[in-house]
Nucleic acid binder design. Structure first.
Lengths: 160, 160
DNA sequence: GGATGTAGGACTGATTCAGTCTGATATCGC
DNA sequence: GCGATATCAGACTGAATCAGTCCTACATCC
């Protein structure tokens, strides 16, 4: 149905949270979970993954928690989502070339790949810092900047 | 996981099939199902939906089948996917504003909406006719045309 | 009337997702 | 040292969704 998982959602929310708070400050999983009403054990696992991937630095013990390991502007949503949910697969054909109708019958595979890459590019060009730019309060993050590559010429009709 | 359902896949394959065969010609669900190895009853239901939405015209009886009700260039993949799978929801917040962390805590909702709209636009700008453009055989469809709005400047690294 | 086709609802099995439970390990403050 | 508070990590469960099947109409042509 072409939707993000809640885990990815939570991960992005947490990363944004860490990006917005004071530079270099850390926040515990519990803190973030309570702020946004996310189940703590679930958020913990997500943050652990993000730490393993290298987006976050973790600190054990009292007053421990997580802090961004890289600048918010260098973390893009594609990497985050891939880190949490695994590879992004638009259509099934991309991975299992064998089971795909066999003998190259799946004629929409290559054309759809362009769509696939377009979506990946949007995600790749959207950083955590971009998520911090609120329509009203533009300076929640440092030197906020609009989505640069996602050129939306016109709003899509009845979106949802 | 941000992927298309198989139903949507099948629907696009069927529409492309109908777009590629001779203009105005029809094909039965059985014919298409056998060509691509798609379970017939499943494909039937998909084609029925597409007919109800107005993309296809159905003909009962012997030698019946489906034919495109509109030109392939006027059917975009967004409408098709929505017709088959229902609304496209990138993040859960877009629909249920109430359950989303309450009190507007879900701070990534609006920023992600831009990403969402970007993806919708890619799909909206990709027509069935675009799917017919093969890298090698560019004239499988009539006056084939490249994806015009999906400007991919560079291939995304390890895509999948 | 039978073969072939669409139309549509109900149902089942498999997969995936969201969340829980349990336990281990590390750090800090007392 | 000990306990409180963290992260770390795997196994497990319930729910939702997806893919596919089954069955029964109904329409058209020969």
């Amino acid at each position: 149905m072409l939707k993000l998982t809640k885990k990815a959602d939570y991960g992005l929310i947490a990363l944004k949270h860490l990006a917005v708070i004071e530079h270099g400050a850390s926040a515990s999983a519990k803190e973030i979970a309570e702020t946004y009403g996310i189940p703590l054990p679930l958020l913990s696992k997500i943050l652990q993954k993000l730490a393993r991937t290298g987006f976050l630095q973790s600190e054990h013990g009292t007053n421990g928690g997580y802090r961004l390991a890289r600048a918010a502007s260098t973390i893009n949503t594609l990497e985050v989502i891939r880190s949490i949910d695994g590879p992004i697969i638009l259509t099934h054909c991309f991975t299992d070339h064998l089971n795909c109708g066999l003998s190259g019958k799946c004629t929409v595979r290559e054309p759809l790949r362009k769509v696939h890459e377009g979506i990946l590019q949007i995600l790749a060009n959207t950083t955590i810092q971009d998520l911090c730019v609120e329509p009203a309060e533009s300076d929640a993050c440092r030197n906020g900047e609009r989505l640069h590559n996602v050129a939306i010429s016109r709003a899509i009709l009845s979106a949802v």
